[in-house]
Design a protein around this nucleic acid. Structure first.
Lengths: 340, 340
DNA sequence: CTGAGGGATGTGAGCGATAACAGCTGGGCC
DNA sequence: GGCCCAGCTGTTATCGCTCACATCCCTCAG
């Protein structure tokens, strides 16, 4: 492979290649675009000249005339979390080599920041945008984006009018809660995520639905902010309450915090309290005890989002209703039969 | 704010704006580029026409003539890990709004994949590239990239000839190890990262250096793969060894695995074994017990890398030797005085 | 009153590709 | 032998912008 410079110093142009190969620039263009009607010998000559000069087509010139950039934009709000990071990774994997992926993380989730970011992307002429937007306000704003901008939301719940890809949060939460109820627990407490997050809302709904279906006592959920710290704080509160035997946490990090809060007070998991998390981050199999949790495949979510977006771009399709990805309950040691 | 479509259907051009404003296209260009010599009244007219038509400059046409794209490329290998994800986030934060950030994750770290990715980026005419490349082979390959491509490596150790930004792994490891020795431990075992990773090598060196300096018995390190699982497996091995009282883990995930392995065998941390990790991931304060670890500020690393790259792009500077970022020892409960 | 000078604006060329069309070849068929 | 058509190649226009230069007009000094 011959890499050549970024070319501050006059990169060779198609014309240069043509001259060296003794053909016209158009023939070079044909070779590059794999046009059928080029004599094999000519094609070879051209390819040789391209290699000799280290020629690389100018993307700007090409997209000026084709009106295509092969760039997609991804808007995310905090890619340091495992979920968004994994989705981004999945998107990127699926995009390569057809598309480039440009990322942007607005500082805030307010209307202005989101629209500015979309605007920035449109200025760069991205062909489509994926928004990793689990927060309610972020999703709401997206309806203001003109309909002719191919747009897909991912991980934003299943109740949005947008083209979207999501996991079935409610089903996962329901399964987790029912699992605990089936183990003989009278009811299940819930440490929820922030109320402004769709995932949090849907998981809360699933939990509440499971309690209702089983005729179990309804409880007030506690709201954390997804962090282990908030799980720790809420765990301290929970541990004061009488009769807590089972807790469903809306994510694994909060479950970790809870684990520590309970442990500090001498409450054993799972002997005294059973605990189930959500996400199945890679670490949760190594918590003390290993965490029973609901696995969601973030990477797959990202890949699906990308496919959906590409479909919309290439076929100008209307958004098909996204089929929610079913999450899977991973049983480990952190939950057991009541009163074991 | 008026968002207008991506414009499959003929977007307005500079000429259209000019006609509406009753000026020439060049005057519109002047307004857009904030050229000083435009009459305020004219500028207002032009801006009004721009808004009225929802005009947005065509990035391809502009960069065709300016030879600038405002796009930077970031190559990373697995952005699902906390470290790379945080660096990417830092880079993106610092890049906005001057540059767009395009990401690519080669499937493998071999020579071919890396150079292909660089090539793809150059094809897109990125103005510079940041490589999040902690592995030895990835860094080695980068020397093959032509020198006129602005390139910065981040988190790739401090001993590379490339323009780079890195934390002082050795100093961090040394501090961690010395801390354990100062607590009265005779020697310190080490669970290292994969030998092919520069960070792993440097942390190992720091550890070994600390042992030497203290006249403590030298030991063979155990090599994991950064995952909690490998920490667990190596922890099982370690727990069979006699006389282990202190362990320094090359990252927090492996420390978590170790924690579980020891706990399963009834070995208490810190009473029986003291443990120190590396990275300070957000969860480590909530491990059981909370993990003493070496904090590195990944976000800051990313921001510095970006600044370095932009310096190189704008001033054509030769790479200055990157000043390593000093890591900080965060003392928590997982390590105590020997024989407490 | 005149001409130099500078601010405001317009004109034309060209960036490097693709697309549409035109032209040149050679083989098959009548 | 002539004609047609298909395969290959070249010519020209065009995408939407910036840059260099030309032009206009107004002010102010001599």
């Amino acid at each position: 492979m011959a890499l050549t410079g970024s070319g501050r110093a006059s990169r060779p142009t198609m014309e240069d290649v043509a001259r060296l190969a003794g053909v016209s620039h158009q023939t070079v263009s044909r070779v590059l675009n794999e046009h059928p009607n080029v004599r094999p010998q000519t094609r070879e000559n051209v390819l040789a000249s391209i290699r000799a000069l280290g020629y690389r087509p100018n993307a700007a010139a090409r997209s000026l005339v084709t009106k295509r950039t092969n760039v997609l934009g991804v808007i995310s709000f905090d890619t340091t979390f495992y979920g968004p990071a994994s989705m981004l990774y999945g998107i990127e994997q699926a995009a390569c080599p057809d598309y480039f992926v440009s990322v942007a993380s607005p500082q805030a989730v307010d209307r202005r920041s989101v629209l500015d970011t979309v605007d920035r992307f449109l200025g760069q002429a991205v062909e489509g945008i994926i928004v990793i937007a689990p927060q309610v306000p972020a999703v709401a704003v997206l309806s203001e984006v003109p309909a002719d901008v191919p747009l897909v939301a991912v991980g934003c719940g299943t109740r949005t009018p947008l083209a979207s890809v999501a996991i079935d949060n409610a089903a996962g939460a329901l399964a987790a809660t029912r699992y605990l109820l089936d183990l003989g627990h009278e009811t299940v407490h819930h440490v929820a995520g922030p109320a402004s997050w769709l995932d949090a809302q849907e998981r809360l709904d699933g939990w509440s639905q499971a309690l209702r279906a089983a005729g179990a006592p309804q409880l007030e959920p506690l709201h954390g902010d997804w962090s282990a710290r908030s799980g720790y704080e809420l765990g301290s509160q929970l541990s004061q309450l009488p009769g807590v035997t089972a807790v469903f946490c809306a994510n694994d990090q909060m479950a970790l915090g809870l684990l520590r809060a309970l442990s500090e007070r001498g409450i054993r998991v799972p002997e005294d309290v059973s605990l189930v998390g959500f996400d199945d981050i890679p670490e949760s199999a190594f918590f003390l005890p290993p965490l029973t949790t609901v696995r969601q495949d973030f990477g797959e979510l990202g890949r699906r989002a990308l496919r959906l977006l590409v479909d919309r771009i290439t076929s100008h399709q209307e958004p098909r209703p996204g089929i929610p990805v079913a999450p899977e309950l991973i049983v480990r040691a952190s939950a057991t039969r009541r009163g074991r």
